[in-house]
Design a protein around this nucleic acid. Structure first.
Lengths: 108, 108
DNA sequence: ATGAGTTATTCGCTAATTGCGTACTTAGAC
DNA sequence: GTCTAAGTACGCAATTAGCGAATAACTCAT
């Protein structure tokens, strides 16, 4: 059970092992151990890594977890189209749109 | 850094410490250590726990991670409205709907 | 090509942590 | 009261993390 994506994510950021270790506040050799699979990060380090690389712990752990997203439960703006976030108005519009579509469909 | 939600999730399932430990294939006292914060699970155990409890590792780790969802990138149906999954047609409809809304908005 | 400087990999050692069994405590059923 | 199951706490053995130092690989300029 290795953290296979670490190297990839780190290189994408153009960071050296030392850079990354510094950001984590650990020794270079320690972080190197994570990438090689020789060592495992503490939970704190894992969480910090996820933050640094802008991803989830599940992702780092190689777990492709996907929760179903219920639009009526969304409190925050999390959806985007063409890489532009939806406003609250747009999100409400989408919900209404879907309900309308379904209503039409049922009457067929 | 404790796994505070474990007890809550276990009780929601009406499992004893022993039940849960059995499912994980570890000793009761070991699992008890996770809940009390005295011990920490291995990554394998963490992942299995997330599976057993139907949640994410991020959730168990107390991390409220939310990725921005780009609708045009969605390969699978992950969205739902009124707890009913959107079909592919509906998802395409939503994207077209948003683009149309924005076009109208820009022309104002 | 040589050498300086940076980056990556490996290793021994120590300190810390895990996982287990066991024992103790509590709670409820009979 | 006694029995069983649940939860808690602890000592011990074994594993593991983290560190620095040593070594190897890579990248430049000269």
């Amino acid at each position: 059970m290795n953290l296979d994506r670490l190297t990839e994510l780190r290189k994408k950021k153009n960071w050296s092992l030392q850079d990354t270790a510094d950001r984590l506040g650990i020794a270079k050799s320690t972080y190197a151990g994570y990438e090689s699979g020789y060592r495992r990060p503490s939970f704190e380090a894992l969480i910090t890594l996820a933050e640094l690389f802008g991803t989830s712990c599940d992702d780092l752990l190689g777990r492709h977890f996907e929760k179903d997203i219920e639009l009526t439960d969304l409190k925050k703006k999390e959806l985007s189209v063409d890489y532009r976030k939806l406003t609250e108005t747009e999100t409400s519009g989408v919900i209404a749109f879907i309900r309308a579509m379904r209503e039409i469909e049922e009457k067929k």
